[in-house]
Amino acid sequence: MEAMVADARPSATIRSVPSEGFKPAKVITQDVNVYYGQKHALKHVTIDIPERSVTAFIGPSGCGKSTFLRCFNRMNDTISAARVTGKIGIDGLDIYDPSLDVVQLRARVGMVFQKPNPFPKSIYENVAYGPRIHGIAASKAELDDIVASSLRKAGLFEEVKDRLNESGTGLSGGQQQRLCIARAIAVGPEVILMDEPCSALDPIATAKIEELIDELRENFTIVIVTHSMQQAARVSQKTAFFHLGDLVEEGPTDMIFTNPKERRTQDYITGRFG
């Protein structure tokens, strides 16, 4: 499976300059622009996303952070008016190469959304769906293992192990979100994108997701868009601040939240008029 993907990789490679204090880059972007029709929604964004770390995108509504996140698995392809320029590389592979299989890309780059969106199927089927369509499991037993281990990694297994055949939509909001994370993990992605994954959850469910994110970063590269600056400060190692389509500032999370260099970052995170 992995070999197939590797063979499909075009020869074009994208390299980054190693940055201090971070793990090597998993995702590299160079001069990325996104246009929605005439609107220039994202302007010349160049940033490295370190592997097996959590990178947070923050910024006011409409700043382009979700738009940028959606470039990483080419979700913007589904919007006909959207146009993306520049380069985005994952492990050196140009993901906008026309010969690239988008379905395979999305298996490598999973996504979790703001509102939990389990399929109207059983808990088991929610997790088994991805591995099944990607042909990852050779047997029913193997599929069972994938489902159980994905639910375990998502911190949900103990709560649902006796009712795997019940509907996923019957779970609480926080459980549904963890189910969606399990579903994303099940196809063995390397990168997980999270677009405000806790904004519809209560504080306890939020804490569980944050704890989970902290565990997941040992094995996955995580990019999270969040409106909660405290959440960005808690869960991420790297933070990037966007404003009006510009990447204003990026750096170690500790630095961004205690001593940002840019005036606009300072004003935004301290709740001042920007």
Partner: peptide, 10 residues
């Protein structure tokens, strides 16, 4: 109450 950040926190 306010979870101060950056300059405010300092």
């Amino acid at each position: 109450r306010r979870q101060p950040m950056a300059r405010d926190l300092r």
